[in-house]
Amino acid sequence: MYPRRPVVVKPQSGLQSDINVTPLVDVVLVLLIIFMVVTPLMRGELRLQIPPSGEVEYPPSNEGAPGLVRLSADGRLFLEGEPVSEADYVPRLRAFLAARPRGERELFFQPDAQASYARLIQALDGAKAAGAEAMGIGVDPP
């Protein structure tokens, strides 16, 4: 019948040594998008209200004036000039603020220049937990 044709077998190609970077680029772009979305959410923000220029005058009876919390260089707290222990800080503040009407539950913090920043933040957190509606921080000018 017909003559048989010879079967031609092609040799296998060698190993491919090129790196396929497309999946790598895809992963990097996805991570970039994730970080771009998440980064603004991770910023810790502290709302500040800048006081008006000039000094605020309070009535002579000291009614309506914010409570004063002092922080010494060694980390001790004083509420209206009286020393307060760590355990009594939040309960004393809560009682102090509860005696004031709503809208006047303000505290003014005066840390020593050498006081620990972390200790000041703890004092501010305790005041917020005690129910302070507004807080201010005062420092002596250099």
Rank of each mutant, 00 (worst) to 15 (best):
M1N: 07
M1Q: 09
Y2E: 14
R4T: 08
R4C: 05
V7K: 09
V9H: 13
V9E: 12
K10G: 09
K10R: 15
Q12Y: 07
Q12T: 11
S13Q: 14
G14N: 13
L15E: 14
Q16H: 09
S17I: 12
D18Q: 12
I19Q: 12
N20S: 09
N20L: 08
N20A: 10
V21A: 11
P23Y: 03
L24V: 14
V25L: 15
D26G: 13
V28C: 10
L29P: 02
L29K: 11
L29H: 05
L29D: 14
I33Q: 09
F35E: 10
F35A: 13
M36A: 15
T39I: 00
P40I: 01
R43T: 12
G44P: 05
E45P: 02
L46G: 06
L46H: 08
R47C: 01
L48Q: 11
L48R: 10
Q49N: 08
I50D: 12
I50Q: 13
I50W: 11
P51R: 06
P51M: 06
P51L: 02
P51N: 09
P51E: 01
P51F: 00
G54Y: 05
E55Y: 06
V56K: 06
E57T: 11
E57C: 04
Y58G: 06
P59Y: 09
S61Q: 13
E63C: 03
A65D: 08
A65R: 15
P66K: 05
G67I: 12
S72M: 08
S72Y: 02
S72T: 15
D74N: 09
D74R: 05
G75F: 02
R76S: 12
L77M: 13
F78Q: 10
L79R: 04
L79K: 01
E80R: 04
G81R: 03
P83G: 06
S85K: 07
A87H: 10
D88H: 08
Y89F: 15
V90H: 06
V90P: 01
V90L: 04
P91L: 10
P91Y: 12
R92D: 15
R92I: 00
R94N: 07
A95G: 07
L97F: 07
A98T: 10
P101G: 03
R102F: 07
R102L: 10
R102M: 09
R102S: 12
E104C: 02
R105Y: 03
E106D: 13
L107T: 07
L107D: 10
F108L: 14
F109Y: 11
F109G: 01
F109S: 01
P111E: 00
P111D: 06
D112P: 02
Q114I: 03
A115T: 03
A115R: 01
S116A: 10
A118K: 00
R119D: 14
R119Y: 01
R119F: 04
Q122C: 03
A123H: 07
L124G: 06
G126V: 01
G126D: 00
G126S: 04
G126W: 05
K128Q: 10
A130G: 05
A130Y: 08
G131M: 08
G131F: 02
E133N: 02
E133V: 06
M135K: 05
G136N: 04
G136K: 05
G136W: 04
G136A: 15
D140Q: 04
P141G: 09
P141L: 14
P142W: 03
